Simulated assay, not measured.
Amino acid sequence: MIVCLLAVLLAALLAGHRAVPNVHGFGSLLDSATPLLGLGVPLLGLAALLRRSRRALAAVLLPTVVWAALYGGAWLPPAGGAGPAAIRVASQNLRSGNPDPAATVDPLAGSGADLIALQEVDDDDRVDAALRQRYPHRAAVSTVALWSRWPIRDSTGVDTALGWTRALRAVVAAPGGDLVVYVVHLGSARAGHTATRDETLAALASTVRHDHAPRLVVLGDLNTAPTDRVFVPLTRLLRDAQADAGQGFGFTWPAELPVTRPDHVLYRGLTPTAAGVLRTPDSDHRAVTASFR
């Protein structure tokens, strides 16, 4: 009986997690952790087997089906567009105080990325020395920066209501025409303290909504999981490269054992051909990558 009850509760939580009130950010935290609730399914299945209960096993099918309907598609072969990639991007939170940022960015350059977006850059000289030969064009504001193989025709800081500028907008002369690139590091979110993050995400969504560039990508650490209800304003405006052309959840944090994905490549006006995650040294985040045509 207990296993059946827990199975029904788990299925209800999976299906209705966004109905849980977002008091002190609890609902947002639950949204972010929802994909991991699937770990409860094998535990309940094991309990049902130990009890030798067919009724309990049948009950465990309910959360299994709900989880598969919500997240099983992430593990299917990616449905990215066919054809060679024309634009490759990578984004990395370097980690403030990184002892060797040059070592962190080296795998990004080695991935063949044409554009590299970085957050928590507090040692421009070492990073620039590692990248400038392959990426001669650079735009930076505060602790976010963009390195590009192609000319950057314009760049400006972007106000995300953080109190200090921690985002930029650049116009890159990419193949096929101008590409608008946002490099963003939104406000931090902690258990019970998501208000700053929520305000910065709403500000970014408003900025993107009023940006009429036909080809646009947002790269960065948004401190928001794609399953979080506060992420919806952005998903109404942009597509998620990992969801469209990657495989799996694409978790990036913490780097040693990722359990969530605050790092994103969002886009419009392009066709993704691939997306994924790249392990890099000396950072507490893994990098995200994507290719487009």
Rank of each mutant, 00 (worst) to 15 (best):
V183F: 00
L131A: 04
G163N: 05
G110Q: 10
E120R: 13
V172Q: 01
R51L: 13
T194K: 11
V171S: 05
A47T: 00
G27S: 10
G248V: 09
V184F: 01
L6V: 07
R236S: 12
R132A: 13
P214V: 04
P214F: 07
D240A: 00
L131R: 01
A290G: 12
A287P: 05
L46F: 02
A103F: 06
A170D: 09
L216W: 07
A173C: 04
S96L: 15
G80V: 00
A140H: 14
T156P: 02
P254C: 02
L57S: 04
L201S: 02
A174L: 11
L131Y: 08
N98F: 01
F251H: 09
R215T: 11
P84D: 11
V105C: 06
E256Q: 14
T280W: 09
G83D: 13
N22C: 04
T260W: 14
G269F: 06
D244P: 08
S283V: 00
V105G: 02
G80P: 08
A82H: 08
Q247V: 14
P262W: 01
G250K: 12
L37D: 12
I116H: 02
N98G: 09
R229V: 03
R132N: 13
A275L: 03
L44P: 07
N223C: 06
P99V: 02
S291Y: 12
G110P: 01
T143K: 15
L278S: 05
P151V: 06
P214N: 11
A19E: 09
P107S: 05
I2P: 15
H193Y: 04
R153N: 11
V230Q: 14
T160Q: 10
A274Q: 10
D128K: 10
L108G: 02
A203I: 10
A74Q: 15
L94F: 02
A241F: 08
L201Q: 11
R215Q: 02
V127H: 09
D114P: 00
V8A: 14
R215L: 11
H137Q: 05
F251W: 14
H17W: 12
S111Y: 07
R197E: 09
A82R: 13
L222P: 13
V60G: 06
W75I: 10
R293S: 12
A203S: 02
L257Y: 12
R279Q: 04
L118W: 03
A225T: 05
P281I: 10
A255T: 01
H17R: 15
L6I: 00
H193T: 15
T165S: 14
G176A: 00
A48I: 00
G40T: 04
A12Q: 09
L238W: 08
G112R: 06
V60A: 03
R239A: 09
L257N: 15
T200N: 11
G83A: 01
G97V: 06
S148H: 09
W75M: 10
T280N: 07
C4R: 15
A167F: 00
V181P: 08
V127A: 07
F249A: 13
R190L: 08
G80E: 04
R134Y: 11
H264W: 13
P258M: 05
D211V: 03
R190Y: 02
G16L: 14
P136G: 03
H264L: 06
P101H: 01
R126W: 02
L94S: 04
P254N: 05
R149P: 00
L76V: 01
Q247I: 13
L201I: 03
D198S: 08
L237N: 04
T160C: 06
G269Q: 03
